[in-house]
Structures are given as structure tokens and as C-alpha cells.
Computed example of a mutant assay.
Amino acid sequence: MRIQSIFIGSVVVGVLSTSYLSLINLLCCFGVMLGGGVAAWHYISTSNRSIDPVEGASLGAGAGFLGSLLSAAFDWALRPLGLDGESVIQNLMGMDMEQMMQQQDEMVQESMMQEPSVGMILITLIMGAILWAVFGALGGAVGASLFGGNDADPDTPPPPPDAPSQTDTSW
């Protein structure tokens, strides 16, 4: 059940971090935190038990980590259509890559035309996965706090209040 909850949360993270929907992450990685909260909520609702924020954070971290990989895959698949995250940002900023290249010197043009190395892609993926795991953990902890509830039986009455103190308060 944990893996299913993490996967559902990671799909939320991946979808909210792709194309135009990725703009929600400009609000302090809100889409990633939302996915972590969804993972915690799903686990709580399917297991019918409460969880503490630490367990919610572990669910959210898993959702954030896996969601970063799904987002990269979604962006890669949408790149030919011009709907990947980078293309969307460029379109919104009104920048044309050819126009930018004409304004830059020759050395910068050469570095921009080169394909990124496999090492650079891996480093970017790993750093993004770690960062998204942190924000996913934050969302999972918040989700556990919001949706966690408690394990107390609703038919059990609360304990009686403490008896009043028998100490003499007169001086």
C-alpha cells in the first residue's frame, strides 16, 4: 500500500511539473509538496489508520524523488511538441533562441549549441531528485498532519479530568 501511495503521489508531482503546469512550482515547489501530501492522504485513507508527520515525510520524499524522474520523462516526451518545461518558459518570456544567440559572443554561442553531456544530465537529475524529495517530504509531513487524524475510537468517552488539588492555598 505504501508503494501504491508513493506512486500516486509521484504521478501528481510528475504531471504538475510538466509543460505549463510546471509553473505551479514557482510557488516554492507547490506542485511537489502537493504530490507529497497526496501520497500521505492516499496512504491514510487506504490503510484506515493515522500516521505521524515523520511517516508522512517518508511517503512524500518517495513521491518527490520518483516524481522528479517522471517529470524528466514527461518533459523528454513533450520536447518534440515544444511543450517541455524549458520551451514553455522561453515562450512565456518571449525569448527566441536565435535572437539570444545573435546578441551573445562566439564563445557563449558555441557552448549553447553543444548538447549537454551525459554526466551533466545525470548530475542535474540527481540534484533535482534530492531537492524534490525534500519538498515532497515537507508536503508529506503537512499532509499527515492535516489528514492523519488519530487512532482513538470515536465511541470511547474522553478520560475524566484530574481531581482538584487538596493543597491549602491560604498563607
Rank of each mutant, 00 (worst) to 15 (best):
L59T: 14
S17R: 05
S50E: 10
I89R: 10
V142S: 02
A163Y: 11
D168Q: 10
N25F: 02
T124F: 09
L81P: 00
G37H: 00
F30I: 04
G31H: 01
S68E: 09
Q166G: 11
I123L: 12
A152H: 14
V88N: 08
M100F: 09
P157F: 11
D96A: 09
V32K: 01
G82H: 12
G9C: 03
D75V: 06
L21N: 01
I121T: 10
L83G: 06
D168Y: 08
F135C: 06
L125E: 13
D75Y: 04
L16D: 03
I126C: 06
S170F: 09
Q103V: 03
L59S: 14
Q102P: 00
S165P: 02
F74Y: 13
G128F: 02
F65W: 14
G60A: 13
L83V: 06
S22W: 06
P164E: 14
L26T: 02
G56S: 13
Y43V: 03
M101P: 00
Q99D: 09
A72F: 09
A63I: 06
A129E: 03
M1T: 04
V15D: 08
N48P: 08
L138M: 14
D162C: 01
S170N: 13
L125K: 11
I123Q: 10
G60F: 08
S19L: 10
E106Q: 10
S5R: 05
I6R: 02
I44K: 04
S165E: 12
Q99F: 02
G94F: 01
V142Q: 01
S145K: 08
G14S: 05
W76V: 00
S47W: 07
V118S: 10
N25C: 02
E86V: 09
M113P: 03
G149H: 07
V142W: 05
S58W: 15
